[in-house]
Computed example of a mutant assay.
Amino acid sequence: MSAEFEHRDIQLIAARHGKAVRLAKGEAVQVLNLHGTQVVDCWAYNADDVSEYMCMEATRVWNQRLNPQVGDSFITSQRHPILTLVADTSPGVHDTFMAACDARRYELLGCTEPHRNCHDNLFEGMAELGVKLPHGNLASFNIFMNIQVQPDGRTLKTLPVVTRPGDYIILRAEMDCYVAFSACPQDIVSIQGQGDNTPRDAELRILTSGFPQVKLQGAWVPEEV
């Protein structure tokens, strides 16, 4: 299971629900896949101006990678680092491509009754902190989600997670920020592990010290020719 780091809070992300936390610059959040089967969507916002948000498009440009690895940072819509991946005990399979599920997504999947979804979970989690977001954001960092780029270089394949019970990642705050999470409620498309596609709880811990420290890297620039 998880290594122990100095922490000030432990919270459960209940299956199908969301949770948000406020981090001070230099703190970190550890996201634990308790059952080894759960996708966890993640968003982050500048605590001083929530119109500045963690942006997957800018992140891919900054790192020149489709998905992050330890040492890579997540970048905001204003091209500032907001979170850095400082530890990952999972196989390192995550996703920055797929939009978070929302009510319309489930309508398209054939649901005729309201279905819990990650987009609503984002707003609910932030509302618990007294924060109202100025707009929606479908572009989440999908922790533990297994989306494979196919050999043709353009097609994506959706597969179940490949993590193990107790696998975790640690994200360090590079500014005061809000970080929101959703224990993805998806139970139609086969993304959750163990083959039964059942959403399950995850856990987060707000870390204050003892976690790995990595140097903040600058933006990618082309090598001089």
Rank of each mutant, 00 (worst) to 15 (best):
F74C: 07
N142T: 10
I170H: 02
L129K: 10
R22D: 00
Y178G: 03
Q213Y: 00
T59Q: 03
E113D: 08
W43K: 07
V221G: 04
D167A: 02
I13Q: 01
E52Q: 12
L108M: 13
L138F: 12
D41E: 05
F211K: 05
D48C: 06
G92A: 06
F141Q: 03
P91T: 05
G195M: 13
Y106H: 10
G166C: 05
N137C: 12
V221C: 04
G26W: 02
H80L: 11
I82S: 02
Q148I: 15
I170C: 07
H135A: 13
V40D: 05
K215I: 07
M126Y: 03
F141N: 03
Q78H: 09
T112I: 07
R200Q: 15
P81Y: 08
D95P: 04
D152A: 13
A219S: 13
A103H: 12
S140E: 03
Q148W: 09
T89L: 08
Q38F: 06
K132E: 14
Q217L: 13
A219C: 11
D102Q: 05
G136H: 07
P91L: 06
A24L: 09
N142V: 09
N146V: 09
T198G: 02
H80E: 11
S73M: 04
S190Y: 06
R116K: 14
A139R: 12
T158P: 00
H119V: 08
E57Q: 12
V39H: 05
F97W: 15
P81Q: 08
P68F: 01
E4K: 13
T163M: 00
L12C: 06
V93D: 05
D72Q: 09
T84F: 00
C55E: 12
Q11H: 11
Q64F: 00
I13D: 01
L108V: 10
I82V: 12
G92D: 06
M126C: 04
F144W: 11
S90Y: 03
C55N: 15
R172E: 14
Y53A: 12
Q217T: 07
